[in-house]
Design a protein around this nucleic acid. Structure first.
Lengths: 228, 228
DNA sequence: AAATAAATCACTCATTATGGGGGATGTTAA
DNA sequence: TTAACATCCCCCATAATGAGTGATTTATTT
């Protein structure tokens, strides 16, 4: 009986009617090191669910062919000749906002990480990851995740966290937060249900403690030291 | 020869001289659901490297015993009776900044996530994780990582990312960014090498486009819509 | 009980900053 | 060749700011 059923399948000219072709995940690689680029491409094509539709050694070409490549995911180096990967991410996200970009790089500097994420990268991997981890990362993106190397994740989390030792009192911190949102003394007073003069006093004390003498100075120092 | 060496080991009264006791990772659980609390504790104690030194159903008690428990890691629920987990995280980090807190909760709301991370949480897990994932998360923290559920990671990343469709020109965005840092028109003009009057014009246009009529309004709207 | 920190409010004074109105010019991209 | 963008200019009234010098009250700590 089993063989009979199989027969039915075999006489079908187009097998896709019986076994509909799986929709492959289209991946583009942008990476100037040929060796790395090719090894990524091989890795991707070895997986039955993925296809590397194109690979480029620069952003400009990748952007040019973006609509014909029509990728779901782009693996992106950010130390590229010509247009930087960061700018590239921005442009790509402008043209095709729904593509997921995974930044893959040797750089672990805070600036690069945050620039890439701000620009629109969905994940941030360092190049020392294993092939298995790379495939995992792609899977994660496809299921709504945001793959990051562990130390990158820690950096990202740390960027949220305020300093535990602030010279400012909680009330002063509150006032400064409002100031940093562009509020005037009068508005701050109204929102905190205190007198404008009290706000002035708090701000005078804040300036003294932070050793500054202007709004901009206080906001800059407080931001840098994660006081707000 | 091997047996001889073993002999030497056996005649030792205190075996720790030969096999020094492994330093156990001390873990504290704060979770008001008794069932969950006990299952976490069991899971931890089953692992030879970990020990659950204490478990509490509220923050206050956990803080009280913080120095005697001396934990490396705290698993923290944030929907607690009495002091909220968020406040608890803040207090704990103030008293003992080097402890790593992993928030474990049913809540996936953006606010809770960011509050917990801002307060000093090193990881953020939702309660639907498997025992294996929980152990993995603890390992990640110990190796400098920041474990997060995938959708939490995406939320965190998204919080960095600017809108791709802004009504503002790049120059206007630039001006607004400076304004949001508390700079005056004059300072902005100096830093962008343009005339103060030009800054004024940009700001007038920004206000019109954002449909506001003040600095605070513009900053609020721009922040909410991720234009800056 | 005395000292300290924190939060609150008051008044003056000079200077800047801000928002709204009007208009203008040159460049670049669609 | 329009439209968008970036640049600059002037007037005006009001609000905001920074510095100075004070005071009161309420906790908390010593």
């Amino acid at each position: 009986m089993i063989s009979e059923i199989k027969q039915v399948k075999w006489i079908n000219i187009n097998p896709s009617i019986m076994e509909p072709q799986k929709e492959l995940v289209r991946i583009v690689i942008v990476e100037d090191d040929q060796l790395i680029r090719e090894s990524f491409a091989t890795l991707i094509n070895e997986n039955e669910n993925y296809i590397c539709v194109s690979d480029y050694d620069n952003c400009e070409d990748a952007i040019k062919n973006l609509s014909s490549d029509n990728p779901h995911i782009i693996l992106m180096d950010i130390g590229l000749p010509g247009m930087s990967g960061i700018q590239g991410i921005r442009k790509i996200k402008n043209v095709k906002p729904d593509v997921d970009i995974i930044t893959v790089t040797v750089h672990e500097e805070d600036d690069k990480v945050f620039d890439a994420l701000c620009a629109g990268s969905t994940g941030y991997l360092t190049k020392n990851i294993s092939p298995k981890q790379m495939i995992n990362a792609i899977n994660e993106v496809l299921t709504g995740g945001a793959p990051m190397s562990t130390n990158i994740a820690r950096k990202v989390i740390r960027s949220f966290q305020k300093s535990t030792e602030s010279p400012l009192t909680s009330r002063e911190t509150e006032v400064l937060q409002h100031l940093a949102r562009g509020k005037s003394y009068t508005m701050i007073a109204d929102e905190l249900y205190i007198n404008k003069e009290t706000v002035r006093t708090h701000i005078k004390n804040i300036y003294q403690k932070l050793n500054v003498n202007s709004k901009a100075g206080a906001i800059e120092k407080a931001t840098k030291n994660k006081l707000i």
